[in-house]
């Protein structure tokens, strides 16, 4: 495993830790999109089916379990925890996220590496992950007040896929890996969706101002 891949996984983990910290310590999920969180549950549930069939490494298995358990628990907190759920911005989080699922699934049926259940679901998870952040970005834009934890959560989440791009370049060059257009292009789209957010995040960080996205 190369340094970009490890750094990518660690920022992904860090983003989830930041979100859980917000939920646990502030007992709040203000500014967090439940729609995006639900999409991540679907992403991990369809991608990590191989946890039962293929063993890669201890690291791989543990990380998969961590991502599955944390994504389920975040959704549980936002839906059912009696304090946390009252802080959910239900009226602002109106992105029709179901409309993302069907096109991603159809695309996975059409464009995949191999037409097997496991491979189609894996591909579906890549397509869905690429666009899963959209409800969250829309919610951020509507939020007048973005707290630091929420801003950092989205930043780390974007950094994760950005670092994966370097991981793929490294693997292609150094490990002579094959062309892998499906993850590369979905990863590129996923990272590009953060471009606008990154711009304002870094600008506010430089000026030491509170993050606010233009409406």
């Amino acid at each position: 495993m190369n340094v970009f891949r490890l750094a990518g996984d660690m920022t992904h983990l860090l983003s989830i830790m930041v979100l859980l910290l917000k939920i646990h310590s502030m007992k709040s999920c203000a500014g967090i999109s439940l729609k995006t969180q639900e999409l991540y549950v679907l992403v991990f549930a369809t991608r990590y089916l191989d946890i039962f069939t293929t063993y890669f490494s201890f690291y791989n298995t543990v990380m998969k379990i961590v991502f599955l358990v944390t994504s389920f628990s975040i959704v549980w907190y936002m839906r059912h925890h009696k304090v946390v759920r009252q802080t959910y911005d239900r009226d602002q989080d109106t992105f029709r996220h179901h409309l993302l699922v069907i096109p991603c699934f159809l695309l996975a049926l059409l464009i995949n590496h191999r037409f097997t259940v496991r491979e189609v679901l894996w591909t579906f998870s890549l397509y869905l992950e690429a666009v899963a952040i959209l409800p969250q970005l829309v919610l951020l834009q509507r939020s007048r007040n973005i707290d630091n934890l929420t801003g950092n959560y989205v930043f780390f989440l974007g950094a994760y896929r950005g670092l994966y791009l370097f991981n793929w370049i490294y693997r292609y060059m150094a490990e002579k890996s094959q062309l892998r257009w499906i993850p590369w292009i979905s990863g590129l789209v996923q990272t590009a969706l953060y471009a606008d957010f990154f711009y304002y995040y870094i600008k506010s960080w430089k000026k030491r101002e509170k993050l606010q996205l233009p409406a």
Binding site: S57, N60, H113, R114, E119, Y164, R180
Partner: peptide, 10 residues
């Protein structure tokens, strides 16, 4: 094996 190579990522 490309499938192994892809699926070892998270």
């Amino acid at each position: 094996n490309q499938e192994i190579q892809t699926h070892d990522e998270l």
